[in-house]
Nucleic acid binder design. Structure first.
Ligand SMILES: [Mn+2]
Ligand SMILES: [Mn+2]
Ligand SMILES: [Mn+2]
Ligand SMILES: [Mn+2]
Lengths: 221, 221
DNA sequence: AGCGCAGTTTAGTCATAGCTAATTCCGATC
DNA sequence: GATCGGAATTAGCTATGACTAAACTGCGCT
C-alpha cells in the first residue's frame, strides 16, 4: 500500500474527488471536463493537474488528460469516506435533512482527523451507506462498485425500493423528497412514455411524472 | 451591531482569536507578541495586522500594535464560540478526552456553518462552558467575564472546586488529569511554599505539589 | 542631547490557487 | 497532406500568507 502524502490542500483534495467522480462516470478526465466540474477556468485545471502529477497522485498526458494513480485514488477515497461518514452523522445524530447534509460535509470533510473519523464511524456502528444511498468506503478504503439499475430501467408495473438519489443539488433533493423519492422508499413504475418521455411513478405520496433523464439518476434495488 | 465580513480566511480567523486572547490577558498586542503567539515571524504578523486593519477588524498604530474593533471582536467571538461549542460536543457526544478536544476543534471551528452551530448548540442544551471550563459566547456573542480566583490565591486549608484549566497543551492536560485536577473536581490547598514556591494540593487522587505558576493558571470557584 | 539596540517595518522570494489573453497543438476535414 | 477550429497550454497578473535579509524607529540610558 503506497504511502499517501498527508497534508494535501483543500483544493487538491477537492480536485481528486472530482477526478474520481469523473472516472467513476466513465468520462475521460480532460482539462475541460475537470475545469467544468470544478467551476474553474481551463488554465486553473491544467495548473492543478500538473501539481497533482508532481505529487504522484495522477498520471498526466499533456493534451490528453489525467488518471488517478493508486496513491491518488486512495487520497480521493479518503476524502469521500470523510464526506459520506459526515453526511451519515449529520443526518442521524443532528437531524439535518437530505438536502442539507451535502454542503456541510463538503466543508467539514477536510477538517476531520483520522481519530475523529474512527470515533464517528464506531459511534454510527460502521455504516455502509450515506443518507443519499452512496456507499461509504471502509476504513481500508474499499468501496462497493454497486452499479445497479435505475428507475428508468424498470418496466411498467415493476416495483422496487429507491437505493440512491443524486446528492449535490438541494433543490432537487427537496423536490424528490416531496415526491416521496428518498432512499428506502417503495416505488412502482406506472408508465414509461416512449421516445425518451417521462416516467410516471407511484410512491406513498402519490403519482408523479419525472423526466427520463432524472429517473436515470435514481438507483433502485 | 456592525456587519461582520463573512468569508474571512482561516488564517485571519486564527489571528483574530489570538489577538482576542492577548487582549483578554491584558497584554499589549504588539507585533512580537502576536508573532510569538501565532508561531510566525514578525514580518508575517505585520502583514496580517495590515490586512486586518484594511478589513476594519483591528485598529493598527504602526510600531505600537493592534486593538480589535467592535467588528473584529465579534469575528473573534464567533470563532471562539465555534471552538468551544465543538469542544463541548466532542467531549459529550463522541467521548473525546480533555486533552484531545482542543486540536480537533481548532480545525473544525472554521468549517462550521451558522446553521450547524445552532443545531449543535440546541442538541447540547445551550451549554455555557466548554470542557476546560472556559465560557462559551452565547448566540449573541455575549461572553462572561469570569476573572475569578485561582489555585494560587487560596489560603492553606481552603477548599474549592476547579472551574477552569489551561486548554492548549495536551501533555499538561493529561498530567493535570492524573493529579485529579479537572473542572468540577474538589481541591484542598495543603501548603503554599514561600518565595513563590510550589502549592501542595489534595484531590481525590491524593496529594501533589505543583508550581505556583501552574497553580495560577487553574481557576477555582 | 545623542547612541544604540530591540523591536518593527520594508523589500524581495516562494508556493498555492485563481484569473484573462495569447499561443500552441491535435485531429478531423477537405 | 495542408488547413482550420476547438481544446489545451503558456504567459503574465492578482491575492493570500509564509519566509529571510535589510532598513528603519523609538525609547531608554548615558
Ligand atoms: Mn470539499
Ligand atoms: Mn480518514
Ligand atoms: Mn483554528
Ligand atoms: Mn457562528
Amino acid at each position: 500500500m503506497r504511502t499517501r502524502p498527508r497534508e494535501l490542500t483543500v483544493a487538491a483534495q477537492d480536485y481528486l474527488k472530482a477526478i474520481h467522480a469523473l472516472e467513476d462516470e466513465g468520462v475521460r478526465v480532460t482539462t475541460s471536463a475537470l475545469a467544468e466540474r470544478m467551476s474553474v477556468s481551463a488554465p486553473s485545471a491544467t495548473a492543478m493537474a500538473k501539481r497533482l502529477a508532481g505529487l504522484g497522485l495522477v498520471e498526466r498526458t499533456p493534451y490528453r488528460g489525467v488518471a488517478l494513480t493508486e496513491t491518488g485514488r486512495a487520497c480521493a477515497l479518503e476524502v469521500i469516506r470523510h464526506h459520506r461518514l459526515l453526511e451519515r452523522y449529520l443526518a442521524d445524530r443532528l437531524g439535518l435533512t437530505l438536502d442539507e447534509v451535502h454542503a456541510e460535509a463538503e466543508l467539514l470533510e477536510h477538517a476531520l482527523s483520522e481519530e475523529l473519523e474512527a470515533r464517528i464511524d464506531a459511534e454510527l456502528g460502521y455504516p455502509t451507506h450515506d443518507p443519499h444511498g452512496d456507499p461509504i468506503p471502509d476504513a481500508e478504503l474499499k468501496l462497493d462498485a454497486e452499479r445497479g439499475r435505475t428507475l428508468s430501467d424498470l418496466d411498467e408495473g415493476e416495483r422496487a425500493a429507491v437505493s440512491r438519489v443524486p446528492d449535490g443539488d438541494p433543490g432537487l433533493l427537496r423536490y424528490l423528497a416531496e415526491l416521496g423519492l428518498v432512499p428506502e422508499a417503495e416505488v412502482e413504475v406506472l408508465r414509461r412514455a416512449p421516445y425518451g418521455g417521462p416516467v410516471t411513478v407511484r410512491t406513498v405520496v402519490g403519482e408523479h411524472a419525472i423526466s427520463r433523464e432524472l429517473a436515470g439518476r435514481i438507483a433502485v434495488a
